[in-house]
């Protein structure tokens, strides 16, 4: 399997980051970075990462099913994550979540028909003092009102 030169460089660095014989440690970061490039963790990727870190594909599958950010199915090009955990909830994060669902016509872990935007209700993501917060892929947005969310989503639609 071939990856972009940047990802290959990242893999090289990761495989050299751990003590000799401990290359399995690179597995989770490798899956995370590769998923960003491929859109999801494919069977082919599982085999490739297993080969590179020296474990069986079964061992990779067993590990990846534990982690909520690793996914076997592709998400939207823009993955919108709305936090409804306690600090965000107190600042109307739950209403924001409902608003997002209505606006996009999709629910938790669903993707719009054009494959552009997906939604996920997430747990605390470390933005509690600037609540309610969302993340679009890895970018944080703080103090998000329904109006601000509309603008963000419209902006994504235009970019898409």
């Amino acid at each position: 399997m071939t990856f972009s030169p940047q990802l290959e460089a990242r893999f090289d660095k990761l495989l050299k980051s751990y003590p000799p014989g401990r290359q399995r440690s690179a597995m989770i970061p490798m899956l995370m970075y590769a998923q960003d490039e491929l859109g999801s963790v494919t069977d082919e990727l599982v085999d490739e990462v297993a080969r590179r870190v020296g474990v069986t594909p079964l061992q990779v599958n067993e590990v990846l099913s534990y982690y909520s950010m690793l996914h076997r199915k592709p998400l939207g090009k823009y993955h919108v994550q709305v936090c409804t955990n306690i600090s965000c909830l107190l600042c109307d994060g739950d209403k924001l979540w409902e608003h997002a669902c209505k606006k996009l016509g999709i629910g938790h872990k669903e993707v719009t028909a054009d494959g552009q935007i997906s939604l996920e209700e997430v747990e605390c993501m470390g933005a509690c003092s600037w609540a309610p917060a969302i993340q679009v892929n890895y970018d944080f947005e703080h103090f998000v009102t329904p109006e601000k969310l509309d603008q963000i989503l419209d902006g994504l639609r235009k970019k898409a």
């Binding site: 605390c124 933005a127 600037w130």
Partner: peptide, 8 residues
């Protein structure tokens, strides 16, 4: 790992 709800 900072994931304790309320912590940022």
């Amino acid at each position: 790992d900072e994931s304790e709800p309320g912590t940022c």
